[in-house]
Computed example of a mutant assay.
Amino acid sequence: MRDHAPPPEEWEGSVLALQRRRRLLPRIALAAAALLTAETALVVATSGQAVALPAKKTQAPARPESGKGPRSAADIPSAKVAARLSGRRVEALSERTETSTTWVKRTAA
């Protein structure tokens, strides 16, 4: 039985080598993260091309519509009334199918 620690070349795969790696790897990872952060900040500051800035909110120009009011109604009679009052066409939701929609014009009788 040995009374002293083995020389370092015999440590490979031993508990001591594993403990040393466990202490060293987080430090390396932290240093790499800090280096990448600093490099990213430098690239952004000098070129301005590394970051996509959020687009400014632009409002689409409003389409001129004749009158205000609902764009849809529950059934045909209420769609007729809404179309006459608003002055524009109104969709009758009760007549909507998977492939078609029914619109009531403001001049509907």
Rank of each mutant, 00 (worst) to 15 (best):
M1L: 04
R2L: 12
R2I: 08
D3W: 03
D3M: 07
P8T: 03
E10T: 03
W11V: 02
G13F: 06
G13Y: 08
G13A: 10
S14D: 13
V15D: 06
V15S: 04
L16H: 04
A17G: 05
A17F: 11
Q19C: 12
R20T: 08
R22E: 05
R22P: 01
R22C: 04
R23F: 06
L25S: 11
P26M: 10
R27K: 15
R27L: 15
I28L: 12
A29H: 09
A29S: 12
L30P: 01
A33G: 08
A33C: 05
A34Q: 04
L35C: 07
L35I: 05
L36P: 00
L36S: 07
T37I: 14
T37D: 05
E39V: 12
T40Q: 11
T40K: 04
V43T: 06
T46N: 08
T46V: 13
T46H: 13
T46A: 08
S47L: 08
G48F: 06
Q49I: 04
V51P: 01
A52V: 15
L53M: 10
P54K: 10
P54F: 11
A55L: 13
K57H: 07
K57D: 14
Q59M: 05
Q59S: 11
A60R: 06
P61M: 13
R63Q: 11
R63W: 08
G67N: 08
G69T: 03
P70L: 03
S72V: 05
S72K: 13
A73G: 06
A73S: 05
A73E: 02
A74G: 09
D75M: 03
P77Q: 10
A79I: 01
A79E: 01
V81C: 02
A82H: 02
A82R: 01
A82P: 04
A83I: 00
R84P: 01
R84L: 11
L85A: 11
L85Q: 11
G87W: 00
G87V: 01
R89K: 11
R89T: 02
R89I: 00
V90L: 01
A92T: 02
L93C: 02
S94R: 11
R96N: 06
R96M: 06
T97N: 07
T99L: 03
S100R: 14
T102N: 01
T102Q: 00
W103P: 00
V104N: 00
R106P: 02
R106S: 15
A108N: 01
A109S: 12
